[in-house]
């Protein structure tokens, strides 16, 4: 028997959008290509070199020898194949495009909003643009990347996405925040 599978975003119908483009904006990305890359023992440097060399991949640090790789260029269906070819025996690649949800928080109060749930120093001097790390936000583990002084990318596990967006709304209660799916 044949089944028709439908790809449904984890936040479809539950996002509770706060419309408009206010001072701070949380954009939820609909289809981001995401993969987890784990370097083979002893090959961390080679894998890192390959990931950095290609501008089509955006590698976010998770742990030693482990990265979340996002791509705007590659489709969710092709990212893993592309990475496997490039990395060869240096690393293991697992598709996470439907396992994680990517969000972008931007605006002048972005760091302040995040500071309501994250205990890591987010001053640009301590957590510079381009840095990424996995950290605890309230009770959820999220991968936070600083893509600009007032711009952060967050990647959460799919099943936590709804709770995480709800948390962010509470964290931003004293700031002006709009929430919606990214138009792109």
């Amino acid at each position: 028997m044949a089944y028709d599978y439908q790809a449904v975003h984890a936040l479809d119908g539950t996002i509770g959008a706060v419309p408009g483009q206010r001072a701070n904006h949380l954009a939820v990305h609909r289809a981001t290509a995401i993969a987890v890359v784990l370097a083979a023992p002893g090959h961390g440097a080679e894998a890192a070199g390959i990931l950095v060399a290609d501008g089509a991949f955006e590698a976010r640090f998770c742990g030693p020898g482990e990265w979340l790789v996002l791509s705007e260029v590659h489709a969710p269906e092709t990212l893993v194949a592309e990475l496997s070819v490039r990395l060869g025996a240096f690393a293991f690649v697992v598709d996470q495009s439907h396992g994680r949800v990517a969000l972008t928080l931007s605006g002048p109060d972005a760091a302040r909003i995040l500071a309501n749930g994250i205990a890591v120093d987010l001053h640009p001097g301590a957590f510079a643009v381009g840095r990424a790390a996995t950290m605890l936000c309230n009770h959820l583990s999220v991968n936070l990347a600083r893509t600009g002084v007032d711009r952060f990318d967050l990647v959460v596990m799919r099943s936590f996405a709804e709770a995480f967006v709800a948390d962010l709304k509470v964290m931003a209660r004293s700031h002006d925040l709009s929430v919606d799916f990214a138009t792109r």
């Binding site: 742990g63 205990a119 996995t134 950290m135 605890l136």
Partner: peptide, 10 residues
């Protein structure tokens, strides 16, 4: 050593 200063809750 990998992530920097973190609270014990992590």
């Amino acid at each position: 050593p990998h992530c920097g200063v973190r609270p014990k809750e992590e």
